[in-house]
Design a protein around this nucleic acid. Structure first.
Length: 990
RNA sequence: GCGGAUGUGGCGUAAUGGCAGCCGCGCCAGACUUAGGAUCUGGUGCCGAGAGGCGUGGGGGUUCGAGUCCCUUCAUCCGCACCA
C-alpha cells in the first residue's frame, strides 16, 4: 500500500530541525590555517580565501532583543552565507560587550552580582539569536567580562603604559627608547627649573616626567564628573551636558585620572579616513570630532606698567606674556582686546587691584555654572575687564585684557585675540561691553549687497561682523592690499621670523579619560608603590575583579573596588602589601580590540597569534549602528594603530568597509483618557456625545480635553484596540469604559517613536518567529527598505512575505510517501530529465544576476522582491524542473536558510546547502531577439513597436517613420529631429 | 551656525539620464464558503464619463529626453556646536 501525501510548509518544525543540524554538525565552524580540520573543511575545499564579516556585538541588556536588533545581523548573515557559497573561508563570529553600567545599576538596586544578571541576559540573547538561524561560529564567542578575555585587555593597557609616541617616527615606541634619549640627552625633558640629568632625578620625579609621555597616563585633568552615576565620563558619553546613560547632570571637575593619549594619533586618525570605505556621514563625524585646525600661536607681552594685585610684584613682570592661538593671524591689525578663559592660570596675575573683586566674583560665577548651564546660556554674554593691558606686537598699542567664558580653557591656549569686526563671537562681546571695532577687511562687493539689500552697498559693521575668509586687507600696515589667503601666508612668516609665535596645528580631540569609579569593568592592572603607579607583570594577569559587599562608593568616596578585602599586591619579602588602582576601565575598553580576539579566540598564550592576525588581516565588512561614530569607532581605530605600531598586527585600520544599519522605530499606540477610567476613541475626541453615552459614562458634558496614554501595541491591530485585552492588560483598567466609533470599535492614535519598553511599542522577534517563522522574519526585515535607512516597524506587512514563503514551498511540490504505514522522508515531484524551457531559464538567470548584484551592493530589499517575481513567474510557468529549482534553492539560502536546507534535502541532497556553489548567470539566456521600442513624441511615449535587436539605428528610424501610428501623431508635420537609441527608445521631436 | 541624510500613490518602497510607481501592504470587485482577520482571481497614482490631461517637496537650468545631472529654495530627521 503506497500513498503520496503533500507536505504543508511547517516552518517551526523545519527551523527547529535545521538549527539542531547546524549545531550538531558544527556547520559554521571556521578554521584557521594552522588548525586541525582546516584542510578537510568545506571552505578549504572550495578554495577558501579569508573573508571577515563582523557585527558590532551587543550589550546584553535585561530587555532582550526587539525586532530592530537583528536587522544588521540578518544583513551580515546573508552576506556571510553568500560569501561561503562563493567559496570563501568566512569568519563570522558573535560575542557580548558584557561589562557596563546597566548591570551595575541593577546590582545596586537588587544586590545581585552583575555577573549573575549578565549571564542570565546572555543566555536569553543566545536563545533569541539561535532562533533566527544565524551562521555564527560560536566556538569563537568572546565576552568582555570574562577573565580569559579581559586578561588581554589589561595586557594591552600595560603596553599602552609602556609606550610613548615618537613624533619623529610618527608612531608608538617602547618607553625605554625615550628613557634612553633622556639619559643620552638626545632630547630634553620637561622639568621645573631643574638642572639635573635624568639619572640624577628621584624615582618620583622620573615617574612624573614619564607620565607626560606614556600613552596610558595618570594626570590631573578636567573631567566630566557625574555625581549620580558616581563616575567620570568621556566626552562622547556626555550629550548636551547630561550623561548618555541615564541623563544625569555632568560637572567639570579637576581629578587625578587615567587617560589614554589618543591625541597623539589625531593626525593619523584623520588622514587614514581617506583609505577606508565607510559612509561619508561617519567619516565627517570623525573629522568634526578630531577637529583639526591650522593656525599660529602668537605672544602678547603684558604692559609692564600694569598695576598688578601685588602677588607677582617681585617677579619680573616685564617678561609676562599671554599666548593666543588663532587661525586668522591676518586679522592681527583688527585686534581690539584679548580674552582669557576664566580658568586660565594667568587670571590672578593679570588682575589689577581695582578690578580684583569684580574678577574674583566673575571667575567664581563662571566656575559654578555647570556645563549644561553654560551651554544653554550661549546667547547671554558675560565677562569682566582685568584692568591689565597687553602690547600689540606690531602697533605697540595698549590692548585691554578681558576675561570671558565664551573662551574655552581646554582649546588652544585658552586665550583669544579678539577681532570684533571679523569674528561674530568677538563681535557680540565687544558690542555688549562697548569695545571698539577695527575694520581691516574690505568684504567683496557681492557680499555687501547680500547684507544690505536696497539700503547701501557697504557692509554694515554695526549689525554684523564679516567672518568670511575672503576680501582685501585694509588698515593693516604691511598687509594692506593683500587678499586674506595671501595675508595669512605673509603674516605667519613674519611672526615666525620675529620669534613672536609659531605655526601651529590644533585639535579639538581630547585625550580619553580611561578610569571609571565603578565596579563592573576591567580592573586597571596597576598598583602603587610610594605613590608611584606601576603596572603588574604579565605573569600576574588577569588581575581578577574582586568580590565586594556593595556596589557603591565607600564612605570616603573611594570607588567600589576599595571595599574589596585583602585585595592588595603582595611582593614577597616586602611589607606591607601595596594597594591596587581602584578605578576600572570604561565600557569601551573591551570593544576596542575584540575584532582581533575573534581571529584567535581561544589562544591562552597571546592576545592573538601572528599567524591568525596575518591570515585574517582586518574586517572586510563591519555592520553596526551609526551611534558609535565618535566613540567606539574612534577608539577601535586608535587601538588598531597602536597595536600595529608595536608590530603586533599587520593592519592600521580595523575595518575596510563599514555599513550603518538604520534604526527600526516603534509605532506607539495611544488611548485617550478623559477621566480616570473613561477612554475616548481617536475620531470621537472633537465630536458630541450622545445622551446614551453620557448616561453610560456618567459624563455631564462633551469631552473638552483628554490625555494620551501609551498602550501595548500587541493588543492593537490596525489602530483598533482589542477592548477585552485592554481590560485584562492591567488591573486598573478592569472596569474601563469606552466612547467608541459608530461601529463600536475603539480607534487608537499612533506615533513613530524609538522602540522601547517604556513606550509599550516593542515588538519581539520571538513572537514573529512563532507566528511566521525565522525565514519569514529575516526576509521581511530585509524587505522593509534599504538597510541604512531608519524605518518604523509595521507587522501587518509581513503577510505578503509569509504568502511568498508558502508559494516558494509549493513550487517544489514536497510530498511524503506512506509505504505500508511507514513514512519516508520528504521528496519532491521534480522533473529530472525534462529540459527547462527558455522562459524558465530566463527567469532563473535574471534572478541569479539580480541577487548577486544586490548582495554585492547591500541592496537586500530589492532581492526579496526579485525572489517574489521569480517565484510568481515560475508558478505561472508551472515549472517543476530540477535544473531550475535546485539553483533557486541556493539563491534563496542566504536569506531564508532553513527552508532552503529543507528543500535541498527534499531534492535528495545529504550535505548542507551552506557550502554549495552559488549559481553563475549565463547571459545568453537573457538576450531576446527583439526589442519592444517605446515610440515617443517630444518625450511622451505614445505607442510601442517591436523590432529585431540587431536592426540598425537607421533602419529603425525608417521603419518607425513609415508606421501609420507615427503619421497620426505627427499630424502632418515634419519631424524636426529623430533620436533612436538602439534597444532603448525612439524619440521624435516635432 | 556647521556638517550629514532624506523628501516618489493611502502606506513600505522600485527605477545604468530613456515607458515613473516594480514587489508588497492596504483598499475595491469577484470566486469558493454556514462563516472569515482563510484561500484564489482581477483591479487599484491623481483628475476626467471619455479622448485626454496632470504627476517624483517648490522654483529655475542643462538635455531630443530629468525622480536621476547642475543652481536655488523649503521641510523633516540625525550628528556636532562659543573650537578662536
Amino acid at each position: 500500500m503506497r500513498n503520496k501525501k503533500i507536505m504543508e510548509y511547517n516552518f517551526s518544525e523545519i527551523e527547529k530541525k535545521w538549527q539542531a543540524y547546524w549545531k550538531k554538525n558544527k556547520t559554521f565552524k571556521t578554521f584557521n590555517p594552522n588548525e586541525a580540520g582546516f584542510q578537510s573543511s568545506p571552505s578549504y575545499k572550495n578554495g577558501g580565501k579569508p573573508f571577515y564579516v563582523l557585527d558590532m556585538f551587543p550589550y546584553p541588556s535585561g530587555a532582550g532583543l526587539h525586532v530592530g536588533h537583528p536587522l544588521g545581523y540578518i544583513a551580515s548573515d546573508i552576506f556571510s552565507r553568500y560569501k561561503r557559497l562563493k567559496g570563501f573561508n568566512v569568519l563570522h563570529p558573535m560575542g557580548y560587550d558584557s561589562f557596563g553600567l546597566p548591570a551595575e545599576q541593577y546590582a545596586i538596586q537588587t544586590g545581585q552580582h552583575p555577573r549573575i544578571t549578565t549571564e542570565t541576559n546572555i543566555a536569553r540573547y543566545r536563545e533569541q539569536l539561535d532562533k533566527l538561524g544565524f551562521s555564527f561560529d560560536w566556538d569563537r564567542e568572546v565576552r568582555t567580562s570574562d577573565p580569559s578575555y579581559y586578561k588581554w585587555t589589561q595586557w594591552i593597557f600595560i603596553q599602552l603604559f609602556n609606550s610613548w609616541y615618537n613624533p619623529i617616527t610618527d608612531k608608538a615606541e617602547p618607553i625605554d627608547t625615550l628613557i634612553d634619549k633622556f639619559q643620552n640627552s638626545t632630547i630634553g625633558f620637561q622639568s621645573e627649573g631643574s638642572e639635573k640629568t635624568f639619572d640624577q632625578l628621584t624615582e618620583n620625579e622620573k615617574s612624573d616626567i614619564l607620565l607626560n609621555y606614556r600613552l596610558a597616563y595618570l594626570s590631573d585633568t578636567m573631567v566630566n564628573w557625574c555625581p549620580q552615576l558616581g563616575t567620570v565620563l568621556a566626552n562622547e558619553e556626555v550629550k548636551e551636558g547630561l550623561s548618555e546613560r541615564g541623563g544625569y547632570p555632568v560637572e567639570r571637575k579637576l581629578m587625578k585620572q587615567w587617560s589614554l593619549r589618543i591625541t597623539a594619533y589625531a593626525n593619523r586618525l584623520l588622514n587614514d579616513l581617506e583609505g577606508i570605505d565607510w559612509t561619508e556621514s561617519i567619516k565627517e563625524a570623525q573629522r568634526n570630532w578630531i577637529g583639526k585646525s591650522e593656525g599660529t600661536s602668537l605672544r602678547f607681552l603684558i604692559n609692564s606698567s600694569n598695576p598688578t594685585n601685588g602677588k607677582n610684584e617681585s617677579e619680573d613682570s616685564e617678561k609676562m606674556f599671554v599666548e593666543v592661538f588663532t587661525t586668522r593671524p591676518d586679522t592681527i591689525f583688527g585686534v581690539s582686546f584679548i580674552t582669557l578663559a576664566p580658568e586660565h592660570e594667568l587670571v590672578g596675575a593679570l588682575t589689577s587691584i581695582a578690578q580684583k573683586d569684580a574678577v574674583e566674583e566673575y571667575v567664581a560665577f563662571a566656575k559654578n555654572r555647570s556645563e549644561r548651564e553654560r551651554m544653554a546660556d550661549v546667547k547671554n554674554i558675560s565677562g569682566v575687564f582685568t584692568g591689565s593691558f597687553a602690547i600689540h606686537p606690531f602697533t605697540k598699542n595698549k590692548v585691554p585684557v578681558w576675561i570671558g567664558d565664551y573662551v574655552l580653557a581646554g582649546y588652544g591656549t585658552g586665550v583669544v585675540m579678539a577681532v570684533p569686526a571679523h569674528d561674530s563671537r568677538d563681535f557680540a562681546f565687544a558690542n555688549y561691553f562697548g569695545i571698539e571695532k577695527k575694520i581691516i577687511i574690505q568684504p567683496p562687493a557681492q557680499k555687501n549687497e547680500l547684507l544690505d539689500l536696497g539700503k547701501s552697498s557697504e557692509w554694515n559693521f554695526e549689525e554684523k561682523s564679516f567672518d568670511d575668509k575672503e576680501g582685501l586687507l585694509i588698515n593693516s600696515d604691511f598687509l594692506d592690499g593683500l587678499q586674506v589667503k595671501a595675508a595669512i601666508k605673509k603674516i605667519i612668516s613674519i611672526i615666525e621670523e620675529r620669534g613672536l609665535g609659531k605655526r601651529r596645528t590644533n585639535f579639538r580631540l581630547r585625550d580619553a579619560v580611561f578610569g571609571r569609579q565603578r565596579y563592573w569593568g576591567e580592573p586597571i592592572p596597576v598598583y602603587y608603590e610610594n605613590g608611584i603607579p606601576k603596572v603588574l607583570p604579565e605573569s600576574e594577569l588577569p588581575l581578577l575583579l574582586p568580590e565586594v559587599d556593595k556596589y557603591l562608593p565607600t564612605e570616603t568616596g573611594e570607588p567600589p573596588l576599595a571595599r574589596a578585602k585583602d585585595w592588595k599586591k603582595i611582593i614577597s619579602g616586602q611589607t606591607p602589601p601595596l594597594p591596587y588602582e581602584h578605578s576600572t576601565m570604561p565600557g569601551w575598553a573591551g570593544s576596542s580590540w575584540y575584532f582581533l580576539r575573534y581571529m584567535d579566540a581561544n589562544n591562552n598564550s597571546e592576545f592573538i597569534s601572528k599567524e591568525a592576525a596575518n591570515y585574517w588581516q582586518n574586517i572586510d565588512l563591519y555592520i553596526g549602528g551609526a551611534e558609535h561614530a565618535t566613540g567606539h569607532l574612534l577608539y577601535l581605530r586608535f587601538w588598531t594603530k597602536f597595536l600595529n605600531d608595536l608590530g603586533l598586527i599587520p593592519v592600521t585600520e580595523p575595518a575596510k568597509k563599514l555599513i550603518n544599519q538604520g534604526m527600526i522605530q516603534g509605532v506607539s499606540a495611544f488611548v485617550y483618557r478623559v477621566e480616570k477610567n473613561i477612554f475616548i476613541s481617536k475620531n470621537r475626541i472633537d465630536s458630541n456625545l450622545s445622551e446614551e453615552e453620557k448616561i453610560l459614562t456618567g459624563l455631564k458634558s462633551d469631552v473638552a480635553n483628554c490625555t494620551p496614554v501609551h498602550v501595548d501595541v500587541n493588543i492593537v491591530k490596525n489602530n483598533v484596540l482589542d477592548i477585552e485585552a485592554f481590560k485584562n492588560w492591567r488591573e486598573e483598567y478592569k472596569d474601563a469604559v469606552f466612547i467608541t466609533e459608530e461601529n463600536g470599535s475603539y480607534i487608537c492614535g499612533a506615533e513613530v517613536e524609538k522602540m522601547s519598553k517604556s513606550k509599550w511599542n516593542v515588538v519581539s522577534p520571538d513572537l514573529m518567529v512563532e507566528n511566521y517563522g525565522a525565514d519569514c522574519l529575516r526576509l521581511y526585515e530585509m524587505f522593509l527598505g534599504p538597510l541604512e535607512q531608519s524605518k518604523p516597524w509595521n507587522t501587518s506587512g509581513i503577510s505578503g512575505v509569509s504568502n511568498f514563503m508558502r508559494k516558494l514551498w509549493r513550487l517544489y511540490k514536497p510530498f511524503v510517501e506512506i509505504n505500508n504505514g511507514a513514512i519516508d522522508i520528504g521528496k519532491s515531484i521534480v522533473a529530472e530529465q525534462t529540459e527547462a524551457t527558455k522562459a524558465e531559464l530566463k527567469t532563473l538567470h535574471k534572478t541569479i544576476k539580480k541577487i548577486a548584484q544586490d548582495i554585492e551592493n547591500f541592496s537586500f530589499n530589492t532581492s526579496v522582491s526579485s525572489f517574489m517575481i521569480c517565484v510568481n513567474e515560475l508558478t505561472e510557468l508551472k515549472c517543476n524542473k530540477r535544473d531550475i529549482l535546485e539553483p533557486l534553492a541556493i539563491l534563496v539560502s542566504p536569506y531564508a536558510p532553513h527552508i532552503a536546507e529543507e528543500l535541498w534535502s527534499i531534492l535528495g541532497h545529504t550535505e548542507s546547502i551552506s557550502y554549495a556553489a552559488f549559481p553563475i548567470c549565463d547571459e545568453s539566456f537573457l538576450i531576446e531577439s527583439s526589442f519592444n521600442y517605446p515610440i515617443s513624441f517630444n518625450g511622451k511615449t505614445r505607442f510601442f513597436h517591436e523590432y529585431d535587436r540587431a536592426l540598425s539605428v537607421n533602419d529603425v528610424e525608417k521603419q518607425v517613420l513609415s508606421l501609420d501610428q507615427t503619421h497620426k501623431y505627427l499630424e502632418g508635420k515634419a519631424p524636426k529631429k529623430i533620436i533612436v537609441v538602439q534597444n532603448k527608445i525612439v524619440n521624435i521631436v516635432i
